[in-house]
Amino acid sequence: MAIIETRDLTKHYFLGKKKTVIGLEKVNLQVNQGEIFGILGPNGSGKTTCLKLLLGILFPTAGEAYIMGKNPHDINMKQHVGFLPENPYYYDYLTGPELLRFYASLFSLETQTTNARIEQLLELVELHNAKKLHLRHYSKGMLERIGLAASLINDPEILILDEPTTGLDPIGCRDTRNLLLQLKQQGKTILLSSHFLSEVERVCDRIAIFHRGNLLALGTLDGLNKQYQATNLEDLFVKTISSFDNQEAAKTGDVT
């Protein structure tokens, strides 16, 4: 059974009278346990919207979302989920360890576990030399790193990452990639969104391509390449999106 699932998940943003923006349109996704699943798509295609709906930050206009068979507002489910928002910002006046400790307390972790994990995670994201620094003095990449550490504080079964490598240097990107693969080996499920095709190509078991809120393609990279007669991910990306745009153009063309 799928560990993350959406059924006809739809989100329309209502901006005043008669003005709506489509965030997501009838998306059916299934992420299996133990896989790394990548969501791709141009800017504004609905990736973040989809992740926010799954986590209960937004409420769907229609359709349903489930994580571990539970709805997005289930507190017990959230105990097992880690989340990294896009371009994360944290509490300016806390230090890295304080931030992690605060989040650990929200998961009701024991002090010993918390202490051990903070050390381990700071080591992992290489911020152990910045322990006394307030977060407002962090660089963009350091914030991304502390965010990654924060998303792992509860040793989650499911990790949801919105553009985890934006802002990281090449070494940080590689380290993150290795970390994700390592987590997968531990049996974790990872759902991520990304703009870095080469990275997605290297770590993801399956991918989904979003465009204007629609799910255009879903499957393994090889399967999709065959289906769309594409040579690589970039080719696939361009092909699916332009064919959708052409169809839409044809439709509106028919009407007028």
Binding site: L55, I57, K78, P85, Y89, Y90, D92, S108, A150
Partner: peptide
């Protein structure tokens, strides 16, 4: 504004 709320509401809190 600073979107720290995303990190709170995705934790096991009401």
């Amino acid at each position: 504004e600073r979107r720290t709320i995303y990190t709170l509401l995705t934790k096991p809190i009401r």
